[in-house]
Amino acid sequence: MTAQPDLQATAQTRQAQTPQPAKPRSAISPGRDHRIDAMRGVALLMMFVDHIPQSLLNRFTMRNIGFADAAEVFVLLAGYASWLAYGRGFRKYGTLGCLKRIFRRCVQLYIGQTIMVMVSVLSIRLWRHYTPVPVDFLEPELAHGMSWVWRVMMFDALPSNLNILPLYIVLLAGFPIFYLLMRIHRSLALLLAGALWMLVNLDPGLNFPNWLDPDGWYFNPFAWQFLFALGVSASAETERRGADFPRLDLLAGCCMLYLLFSALQAFPWGQWGLPDLRPFGSMIMPEKSWLSPLRLLDVMAIFYLVQSSARARRWAAESPTGQLLARVGRHSLEIFVVGTLLDLYARLIFNTFGDGWVLQVVVNVTGLSILFGLAAWLDKYRSRQKLAALDKQAKA
């Protein structure tokens, strides 16, 4: 009568001692804030659409309903992600180890920039053998000869639509300095970053030189570093609190009112054949190059409303749409490089064959499908890499 329980106990013991196959793991850790990935995914898709002037879809991006556009969101979230990747890395990997990681990422960004420049120039030069290409597709200085190569590779010349990755490289390379200032005092770091931004707004001539533009870099690094620094500080504060930003009704209401004003003022009423409802009809749109205060307030208002919303957190983590956008945002470099090259080919196609409805549908659907498909493939590839690394560790 006692033999059967003993056999069962022995079987259970053997089963417990037998290595069980590893359960599939998601590429995303449970504590990851998917709102950051989803917002970055939205920004990347909007940049893809905005960089095709002939595309009708760019009438529906955020630049039409506010002072800021996808570039501000991208840089702010780059700062936020930088703290997650490297701010904690100084404690985890040590100073030298983290500096190596930052350098490695800068090299990856530089390779992405090189690929975009080379493919763009070669594609345009090849395309114009068969049909005329407007000069705004490629700066006249770069249209002939190869003397421009060293300038572009040294960031002394930044072609249009290929100028945001150099900004990111400069900001990321300066991250250790900002981190050091934060270690001294977080308020001091933000104060210095804000003072430099304010100085540039008072004197926009303070900029990096650009062989192709006497005004310098389109994205002035001395101004845009403040937005990056705000993202870093927000990420560090969220980590310190261990919770989202508090939802203050008064602050949220002010943000909503400002975004309403921004939408009314920035909306292209004439383009849609609607009455002009701008509160200040003669107001000049805030300057993007040196990140005017109105643009900065716009993106910070959006960021606060999203990051203080528990509903937005659930939506990004649980809804199919939120996860689809987050998947795009998790692979920002690859999506940005491919999206920028797709922009070029879309512009060439529209310029050569017209921008009728059929081509509008074909170009936009094809481009977005490629980006979503690439994000899905990269997600699966990263998951397989992580599982392989875990299996290797288990066997060791």
Results as ranks from 00 to 15, higher is better:
14 R>F: 12
18 T>V: 08
19 P>W: 11
21 P>Y: 09
23 K>I: 09
27 A>L: 05
28 I>A: 04
31 G>Y: 00
31 G>T: 01
32 R>G: 03
40 R>C: 06
42 V>P: 10
49 V>H: 02
50 D>G: 08
53 P>F: 06
56 L>R: 14
65 I>D: 07
65 I>C: 10
69 D>A: 11
73 V>Y: 10
75 V>T: 00
76 L>E: 01
78 A>G: 14
81 A>T: 04
84 L>C: 08
88 R>H: 14
89 G>A: 07
92 K>S: 13
92 K>F: 09
99 L>H: 12
102 I>N: 07
102 I>F: 08
105 R>H: 08
106 C>Y: 02
112 G>W: 03
113 Q>S: 14
117 V>F: 06
118 M>D: 06
118 M>V: 15
118 M>K: 10
120 S>P: 03
121 V>Y: 10
123 S>Y: 09
126 L>S: 12
128 R>E: 09
128 R>S: 11
139 E>Q: 10
143 A>Y: 07
158 L>N: 01
174 G>M: 03
178 F>I: 06
179 Y>C: 10
182 M>K: 10
184 I>N: 11
189 A>Q: 10
193 A>D: 08
193 A>N: 11
196 L>I: 13
197 W>I: 00
202 L>E: 05
207 N>T: 10
208 F>K: 02
212 L>Q: 07
214 P>N: 08
214 P>T: 08
220 N>A: 03
222 F>W: 05
223 A>Q: 01
224 W>Q: 05
227 L>D: 04
227 L>K: 07
234 A>W: 15
240 R>Y: 05
243 A>W: 08
244 D>R: 15
246 P>W: 12
247 R>K: 14
247 R>F: 13
248 L>Q: 15
254 C>V: 14
255 C>H: 01
255 C>R: 06
256 M>L: 12
257 L>M: 07
260 L>W: 03
262 S>P: 02
264 L>M: 12
264 L>N: 08
264 L>E: 07
265 Q>N: 05
273 G>M: 00
273 G>A: 04
276 D>C: 09
280 F>G: 02
282 S>C: 01
287 E>S: 14
289 S>C: 04
294 L>K: 12
294 L>S: 12
297 L>D: 07
301 A>E: 02
302 I>Q: 13
307 Q>K: 09
307 Q>M: 13
309 S>M: 01
310 A>L: 12
313 R>K: 14
315 W>E: 07
321 T>F: 14
322 G>F: 04
322 G>S: 06
324 L>K: 11
327 R>F: 08
338 V>M: 02
345 Y>G: 09
352 T>N: 08
352 T>R: 14
358 V>H: 11
360 Q>R: 02
361 V>N: 07
363 V>N: 01
365 V>H: 03
369 S>C: 05
389 A>F: 11
392 K>A: 15
392 K>M: 12
393 Q>H: 15
